[in-house]
Amino acid sequence: MYKILRKERLNDSVSLIEVEAPYIAKKAEPGQFIILRIDEEGERVPFTIADYDREKGTVTVIFQIVGMTTERMNELNEGDYLLDFVGPLGKASEFEGVKNVAVIGGGLGTAIAYPQAKKLNSMGVRVDMINGFRNKDIIIIEEECRAACTNLYTMTDDGSNGNKGFVTTKLEELIEGGEKYDLVIAIGPLVMMKAVCELTKKYGIKTIVSMNPVMIDGTGMCGGCRVTVGGETKFACVDGPDFDGHLVDFDLAIRRSKMFAEKERTARENHKCRMEGMNNA
């Protein structure tokens, strides 16, 4: 059992939990993920590690309520327990020898991009962070990000924070303005990562993306998380989750991400019915 020590609501649909997991906290590195299961009936769901504290022995996960498990996670509070919490899984991000990096986060992906920026920043690397959100109301961890980079650019699709545009708009502007990035790290929705990769390919800048497909065990056993990279089948859980974005088949990944969509809707509706049934009882 793994205790939730802290829970914070970051916006209407995004929450943070800090979980007591000393063994994992000791080993976790940016880019790695954990798999959790709420209770006996729960599914195993992967979440990228958003932060860790080796001294306190905690691992932080930031999640958006998009399905059954995240909805149930949001019903948990400080002091509650998760039945299972496994990790750190996947390979840690590698950024040997880089000097000037653009770290890009889209929506919830910002939470996953943050530890990468933080690590690079602590290594003395120059980091520009570009985060994108639909509007200003759902901007998360802006202050943390600001502290983890040289320049922070927060973009909104509707311009409600005064910076209208996609992350790609800002990235292109910076590159055109003369920034010489030796690496771009893009983490967010598949369509966003695809757009970033199309742009950076044009400029020939190496780009790392973080894939988060459906998986069960997270140790290479189910093969459900397979992604096609450079024409080869890779397992995101053991070969990734970081991959060379210029080689990832995003269209395939987008299709595969929909495999259980209908079932997930059923599960969520069923859960809502159960909760309402309990409230009415």
């Binding site: 729960g42 189910c222 459900g224």
Partner: peptide, 28 residues
């Protein structure tokens, strides 16, 4: 979509009990 390894298919059913979905959360 729809192509599984036997490991994934059987793990969903046996370990995660997706044959009892939606009582259990794991779909198949």
């Amino acid at each position: 979509n729809g192509v599984y390894s036997a490991n994934e298919f059987l793990t969903r059913i046996n370990l995660m009990k997706s044959y009892r979905f939606p009582e259990y959360d794991t779909p198949i």
